[in-house]
Amino acid sequence: MEEIIPELSVLLLVIVRVTSFFIVIPLFSHRTIPAMHRIGFAILLSWMMYYTVEVPMLEIDGRYVLLVLKEALVGLSIGLAAYIILAAIQIAGALIDFQMGFIIANVIDPQTGAQTPLTGQYLNMFALLLLLALDGHHLILDGIYYSYQYIPVDQIALRFGDGSLANYISRAFGMMFMLALQMAMPVVAVLFLVDVALGIVARTVPQINIFVVGFPIKIAVAFIVMVVVMGAIFAVVEELFEMMLYTMRDVMTLLGGT
């Protein structure tokens, strides 16, 4: 019995990191996936990782409680870093919806349960399908697996004091907004020109109700432009996936101090 307890304690730490990672990571954290399935998959993955990751034996004491908190923080930090990067897709959709006039028609995001822009949810669904098609979910799982090379199980201290992690996250935020602007700019620019044209028409022909006429025109133009530039948008999405993986790795490096 004395030999079993330390092994179970290590397995519990692995489960805590993987489960907290699945809480916020895109795709795996969708509320449409039953909670029992997510928990079961997290436990199964943790059990497989336990036998492949070299971990020391740990005793359940006061230090162990700190390790549990640290594992939860590590999993949440890595997953949140990936979620922040992929949020660029939702922001791009919000920018497009604002110009189209769809900003008043939000839908429920199955991942967060909050209201999100219609176009943003549309692009997000296609992005997740692209992520699956490119086997990106395998790379996401590799990220949590190789996190033990950067942050061992028995390491309590994490590097939060020097400010390097905060600086990196702020730069990641800036890059995320830049990529969102790149995805939305073609549609936003064309809709801006449509607004200018509608303004000229409203000045020259005051009898036309420009609000009634302009709304369907902007929607039609936006959809046409989105179809034309969809390839370019998803080229940026592929770059976004690559940036997400690099961000996860860099966050692990900064947290572990390696």
Rank of each mutant, 00 (worst) to 15 (best):
R63I: 05
N106P: 01
A180Y: 09
L67H: 05
M243K: 12
I233D: 09
I96Q: 00
I210N: 06
G256P: 02
Y122G: 11
V74G: 04
G231R: 13
V16G: 05
F177Y: 11
A184E: 04
G62F: 09
L95E: 06
F126H: 15
G113A: 07
H37F: 13
F28Q: 07
V188R: 00
A133S: 15
A220V: 14
G40I: 08
E71L: 08
V16S: 03
I96L: 00
G120Y: 13
G257R: 03
V74T: 06
L95A: 05
G120L: 09
Y168C: 10
N106A: 07
A222W: 03
V227Y: 14
L254C: 02
Q121L: 07
F98G: 06
V153S: 02
M125Y: 12
V221L: 07
G161A: 09
G257Q: 04
M230N: 14
L191I: 01
L245K: 05
F126V: 13
A202D: 11
I233F: 14
L128N: 12
L134G: 12
S147F: 02
F21D: 01
S170Y: 12
Y145L: 15
D142K: 15
R203Q: 13
V236K: 12
L45P: 02
F41N: 06
L8H: 06
V205W: 08
V14W: 00
V190W: 02
Q111G: 00
I15H: 03
F234P: 05
H137E: 09
G136Q: 12
Y64H: 10
P6D: 11
A172G: 00
E3P: 02
L45R: 00
S77I: 09
F160S: 05
G257I: 05
V227E: 09
I140L: 15
V227M: 14
A235G: 15
I85A: 03
L27E: 09
G62K: 03
